[in-house]
Design a protein around this nucleic acid. Structure first.
Length: 413
RNA sequence: GGCGCCAUCGUCUAGCGGUUAGGACAUAUCGUUUUCAACGAUAGAACCGGAGUUCGACUCUCCGUGGCGCUGCCA
């Protein structure tokens, strides 16, 4: 096959946000095209005028950009190509392959044959046309429906490989029928396995977040997102793998046949791995410069950007639940007494060598000193090491926070 | 109902006739330890069923079962 001839397409409908399934389909198209130095055509399938909205188009393009998925050509909008469909519709009508029925235009299906195509991923697939019936391809001459529009577009845009979801397998029979009626040669088909929800049904809203935007907001990295989507239904040489390597080793025929459950935990793990690999500057650029001082701690604990909330107490004194001050192996009173001691030490000698001093008074059960200290400073039962926190906050702020929990406590009593 | 696709640990998967069925995520336990995280170690966890083919099937064939998808003048 001549690599120069490889052309794939990405045809979203501007009827909503791009979702995980769409994007995964595009990821595979993209990889395949890049690897073969092929061309990628983006086009908007907006034959459904009721639901299509222009602003979704913008959002879709933004999402693609965010993910770093570029394309070579914009194939336009189907709503603006009615002349073209009109021409083919007339051809079909003239040749008797199609006819009008109740205003709409239907394609005539020869029910006596078998449609066979060779799917790159699944092999030979057959359909007996006796189960097909004439189907509507246009509302009227100026308003084509999906099946006609895709077939015509793919032909006009000289698409060589159609890589799409498994949910289109049944449609392929219709498309081939149409291609035959129009005298088009068929492109090569590759049907991807579906992305599933936890209950193994096609991933949809009821499974939780499916729009890319939601993941964007939660702070997942584009590279991590791309990586995860690429290994859902495909097994490269390594799980954490760059786009470049993926392009190099990608093989369409190695895409799996069975659907794959979307596992947010694995996505989070991958995202964490990408965060670990980022340089300090890169990380600060994505999370904000204000985290500079606590970067080592942040780096160690965050899996995604939304985890950053956990560090809010560095920037604003937390509200502390007095009960939380109690160390599990001691009473609340003992814990408070220890905190008072800690306060005294800091008041007198500052934070110099504080760890050694605290270790000393905490000998035997260091939790008794560190636990209430942590809670006073962070308001949290899980946090980085309180000494590290204290050093970043500085003596004055540390004392203020300890004071605060004590004052509150007196009021409570 | 009809048509189609699919079938290995909880999840993602490796395997392409002979393996102690491997890895990753998740989970559990232990270690370190002031908590969480991180890290290290360990553990549990799978070939849907039945026939065939074969000296030998997770692997090939058929049947069954199950899951999913499609079944619009939506895409």
């Amino acid at each position: 096959m001549n690599p120069a001839e490889i052309r794939v397409r990405f045809p979203p409908s501007p009827t909503g946000f791009l979702h995980i399934g769409n994007i995964r389909t595009f990821v595979f198209n993209w990889l395949f095209a890049k690897q073969n130095k092929g061309m990628i055509v983006l086009r908007m399938e907006d034959t459904d005028r009721e639901r299509s909205e222009k602003h979704f188009e913008k959002l879709i393009i933004e999402d693609l950009k965010w993910l770093g998925l570029d394309y070579d050509e914009f194939g336009g909008r189907q709503s603006e190509r009615t002349d073209i469909y009109n021409k083919y519709l007339k051809q079909l009508l003239d040749s008797g392959e199609a006819y009008e029925d109740d205003g709409a235009i239907k394609i005539k299906v020869d029910t006596g044959k078998t449609i066979i195509f060779d799917d790159v991923i699944r092999g030979r697939i057959e359909f007996d046309t006796k189960h097909e019936k004439d189907f509507v391809i246009a509302r009227n001459l100026d308003s084509p429906l999906y099946h006609l529009a895709v077939v015509v577009d793919d032909y006009e845009m000289r698409i060589s490989h159609i890589i799409r979801g498994e949910d289109h397998i049944a449609n392929t029979a219709k498309h081939i029928l149409l291609q035959e009626a129009l005298g088009f040669t068929s492109p090569i088909y590759a049907h991807l396995p579906l992305i599933l929800g936890s209950d193994k049904s096609k991933l949809s809203k009821r499974h939780g977040a499916v729009a890319l935007d939601e993941y964007k907001e939660q702070g997942f990295l584009p590279d991590a997102m791309f990586n995860y989507l690429a290994i859902l239904g495909y097994t490269p040489s390594a799980e954490i793998i760059s786009r470049e390597e993926l392009i190099k080793e990608f093989e369409l025929t190695k895409i799996h046949k069975a659907g794959a459950v979307f596992d947010i935990k694995k996505l989070e793990w991958i995202n964490g791995e990408y965060i670990k690999k980022m340089s300090n500057d890169e990380l600060l650029a994505t999370i904000g410069q204000k985290y500079e001082k606590i970067l080592p701690m942040v780096r160690e604990r965050m899996k995604k950007k939304s985890d950053l909330e956990e560090f809010d107490f560095f920037f604003e004194a937390p509200t502390v639940d007095p009960e939380l001050l109690k160390w599990k192996k001691a009473s609340l009173e003992e814990s408070k007494a220890m905190l008072a001691q800690v306060k005294e030490i800091i008041e007198q000698t500052g934070l110099e060598d504080i760890r050694a001093k605290l270790d000393a008074i905490g000998a035997g059960d260091r939790g008794l000193v560190y636990w209430p200290f942590r809670v006073a400073l962070s308001g949290r039962k899980a946090s980085p090491d309180p000494v590290d926190i204290a050093i970043i906050l500085g003596k004055d702020e540390v004392l203020r926070r300890i004071e605060n929990v004590n004052i509150k406590d007196q009021n409570d009593n």
